[in-house]
Amino acid sequence: MPPPLADAETVDLSALVDTERYPLHDPRSPALEAAIAKAREDLEREGCAVLRGFLRPERLAQMQAETARLAECAFFNTREVNAYFTADDDRLPHQDPRRLFMTRTSGFVTRDMIPADSLMQRLYVSQAMKQLVSACLGRERVYEYADPFAGLVLNVLPEGTEQPWHYDTNEFIVTMMTQRPESGGQFEYCPGIRTPNDEHYAAVGEVIRGESREAVKTLSLNPGDLQLFKGRFSLHRVTQVSGEVPRLTAIFAYSETPGVVGRLERTRQLYGRVSEQHILAEARYVQRADGLLD
């Protein structure tokens, strides 16, 4: 029998997820309600929540093998970027964080290259996964991206690569590390360092320049943990990876509104190409209500 394809109607993930700890098939289960309540508390307090040991051990091993194969197809790009993925503006002071550029050296495998029968796809599209994410975030519903490249991607960080300080375009992101590097590759973040009404450039600049680590937290992640993170308001990075084993992370991006397509320039920087869908979406782009830089 061929492996099952991704099914958006799937609510039974018992073959993939440790449903003794996270009984997704029973929304009224005390165990699931407790896990969701803790995730909400952590997100409110720290802007980050982790569901430890989300996958069954045998499925984690399968996902590790799948992502290792996919990693061989990753697109790598080295660019000088600021935390906002915007161009330099010489009208600003030199110490302004919008003028602080860092080397980003990371790789991605985009959704259009990820097979429909992979565990990544099956998790991403399932109703059970969306219901869990929306419940943890306290949202009525979340949607998959309409973006043909983003939404579901594999982030690949081999030796010498890193993701410098940045924000996410979306308010929240869901990730799962599938392979830990030999050393380095630490996830660091500054919860709520900016708000919808204030970029707090001074505090952000201190972190990026390495002048202060008062706002910086380091999160220990294990392969198979499901992480929910409010990356639009929390400056974050992955430190440089060392050793022969790359850091591999599945990224499951959802949105509160349907039809989300990534910005044209950000897509080009991250994935090295754009589609007609990105070009059309850019022509219709309207500045977000919060007024923050993307």
Rank of each mutant, 00 (worst) to 15 (best):
E140C: 00
L280F: 11
L226H: 04
L264V: 01
G160P: 06
Q131I: 00
R232T: 04
A116I: 06
L100T: 12
A202I: 10
A74D: 02
S134F: 00
A37V: 02
Y124V: 07
Y285L: 09
P181N: 10
Q163I: 15
A150N: 14
T110P: 11
S183N: 11
Q287S: 12
Y189G: 04
I173H: 09
V133N: 04
R91M: 07
Q186R: 15
I208A: 10
R98Y: 05
N222W: 00
L16S: 06
M102P: 01
G262A: 09
E276Q: 14
A74M: 05
P158V: 01
M63Y: 03
A215E: 10
E9S: 13
R232K: 15
P258Y: 02
Y254H: 06
S118R: 11
A289F: 00
F101E: 07
K130V: 00
L60V: 04
L16Q: 02
R56N: 03
R69Q: 13
E206D: 14
G107I: 03
L235F: 07
D18H: 05
T19C: 15
T161I: 04
T239C: 08
A203D: 14
G243T: 03
A83T: 12
A37M: 04
Y22S: 10
G210R: 15
P27T: 02
R98S: 04
L119K: 05
E58T: 12
L293M: 05
E41F: 01
V125K: 07
A281L: 06
T249C: 15
E206S: 13
G47V: 01
T86P: 08
D117G: 06
R213E: 12
T19N: 05
E214V: 10
P115L: 10
L43H: 08
N222H: 12
A31I: 04
A31C: 05
P2T: 12
G224W: 04
E66P: 07
F229L: 08
I279C: 14
E265N: 04
E182K: 09
V142D: 05
R79T: 05
F108Q: 13
F54Y: 13
R21A: 11
A250T: 08
R40K: 15
A146Y: 00
T103S: 13
E199Y: 06
L293F: 09
Q64M: 12
Q287L: 13
N155I: 06
A289I: 03
M63L: 15
A34V: 04
E282T: 02
A68N: 08
G205C: 08
F187Y: 14
R284I: 00
F75A: 06
L70P: 11
E20S: 13
S242D: 01
E66G: 11
P27W: 02
G231L: 11
F187C: 09
K130N: 11
T103I: 09
F233P: 06
M176L: 10
M129I: 05
L16G: 04
R59F: 01
Q95K: 11
I208E: 09
L137R: 03
F85R: 07
A68Q: 13
A71T: 00
